[in-house]
Amino acid sequence: MALKIVVLAKQVPDTRNVGPDAMTPEGTVNRAALPAVFNPEDLNALEQALRLKDQFPGSTISVVTMGLPKSAEVIRESLFRGADFGYVVTDRCLGGADTLATSYTLSQAIRKIGDYDIILGGRQAIDGDTAQVGPQIAEKLGLTQVTYAEEIISLDEKARKVVIKRHIDGGVETVEAPLPLVVTVNGSAAPCRPRNAKRVMKYKNATVPAERPAEKADEIAARNAAKPYLNINQWGAADIDADLNQVGKAGSPTNVKAVKNIVFKAKESRVMTGSDADVEGLIVELLNDKIIG
């Protein structure tokens, strides 16, 4: 049996490599200074999806992302690695969304895709570290969930059950859950396979309409008519029948009251070198003061 697999992916600013220019003098985030990357744990989720596709020939992987048109980059990266279809949900009214509004928007997109057996996503995104969107989507779609997944051990297509190894606090457990199901995958799971060179050649010019320069739109449309796989689906709020009260800022219960730069309560530090004399002096002082020893 072939599976219908949905993978949730997010393009995120690379908060792992934050430099001193990451903040503007006004104290807001300088997004321009941070490279945009494929959220790392979403790549782990994609790998689990690709393994299912390997195991169940004929399966299809649809990758869904919400963000600016340029987030189509994560769709291309997924196509290069073996995904089949991509959907970029992008609309001005979706901006300012917290996790709840995001989960509503993505769940509407998944409903629109319609047919799914398993929905995979990273455990959390590195720009927020909340781990909330996966479970919130599961709840909205009326599905159960397995979070913190390490590996999909087996999938029984007849019984419609899947066995998954997952992390728990201080240990691991193995659970059996029914399909359809939402699974969020840990960063410690198998890393995603590299791009496939042939697929890169095939999909490198795949775009969403909003990415295409106006002056080249006709040319691209003509080319894509012969190569429809170069059209990445672009959906706005209306395309996914979204209730505008549940998307973007309007659909977000959380408000940011204040954001402030960190000012450490500076102490008067004693500064010393790494010389033998300085290090021995410190050790002796700490021993004498009974701070250590």
């Binding site: 600013p13 908060t15 720009d127 219960p253 959380t254 408000n255 204040a258 730069n261 960190i262």
Partner: peptide, 16 residues
């Protein structure tokens, strides 16, 4: 803390 730890955010959800 939020956004790579460069800021501290105070979040409020007043209406729900």
């Amino acid at each position: 803390p939020a956004f790579g730890g460069n800021i501290v955010a105070t979040i409020v959800n007043p209406e729900h």
